[in-house]
Design a protein around this nucleic acid. Sequence first.
DNA 1: TTACTATATGAGTATATACTCATATAGTAT
DNA 2: ATACTATATGAGTATATACTCATATAGTAA
Lengths: 109, 109
Amino acid sequence: MPDSKKQLLFQKQARIAQAIGHPLRLEIVDFLKDGEQCVCDIAEQIGAERSNVSRHLSVMVAAGVLEHRKEGLKVIYRLKCPCILEFFKCMSGMLKQQARESSRLLNEL
Amino acid sequence: MPDSKKQLLFQKQARIAQAIGHPLRLEIVDFLKDGEQCVCDIAEQIGAERSNVSRHLSVMVAAGVLEHRKEGLKVIYRLKCPCILEFFKCMSGMLKQQARESSRLLNEL
DNA sequence: TTACTATATGAGTATATACTCATATAGTAT
DNA sequence: ATACTATATGAGTATATACTCATATAGTAA
C-alpha cells in the first residue's frame, strides 16, 4: 500500500477509535447493542443532558460508528455495523491482561 | 454488574480507545506489531520528532497498551498485549461497511 | 574527566474537546 | 392559529491534547 493511502487509513481508523474513546460514548454504544433508541431514551439511560448526548451522537455518526433516521419528532440512532462490538472483546482482553499483571506484581511483594 | 463498576469499566476502556485514537499512535502500534523498537527508530519510521513520539508512547503506556524496558541508553517499547491488534480487524470491518455504503449511494445517482 | 547519544519532561502556545445554557427548528396535538 | 415535545446547534467557558523548543537525566565512549 502506498504511504499516502496508509496515512489516510490511519486517520480514518483513529477517528473511529476517538469516537468511542469517551466513557459516555462507550456507554451509548453498549446501550445500542440491544437495539436502536431515540435521543431522549439514551439521555435518560446514561444520565446526561440531551444536548450533550446529541453532540456525542453526532461525533459517532461523523466517524461512521452510528447512523440515524427520523421517526416523527424523534430521531432514532443505531449501530451502523455490529463489528464495533468486537472492540469490547478487544478491550476485555487488554483489561484481563492488565489485571493478571497487577496481581502478579502484588504476589511479588 | 453494579453501576459504579460499569462506569469504571467504561472509563478504562475509553482510555484505551483514546490512547489509540490518533493517527501517529495507530501508526506506532502498527509498527510495533512486528516486534519491539526503540524510540529513535519509531520516530524515524513515522517521521515525527522524538520528543513528540516519546509523549505519544507515554500516553499508550499509561493506558496499558504498551510497555517498555531499558537497554543501555535506549528504551524499548512493545505491545503489552497482542489483542490490541484485534482492533485493526474491527476497524477494517467498519471501514468496509462504510465503503459498501458509499458505493451503494453512488449507484443510486 | 569531557563529549556524545537516547530519552524524558517543563514551559509555552495553538487547537480541540466537553459541557452548559439559551435558542432555533421541526413535528404533533389542541 | 397556539402550545407542547424532541432534537440540534450557536455561543461561551473550562479543560485537555498536540506540538515545539529548550533543558535535564542517564548511560556510553574517549
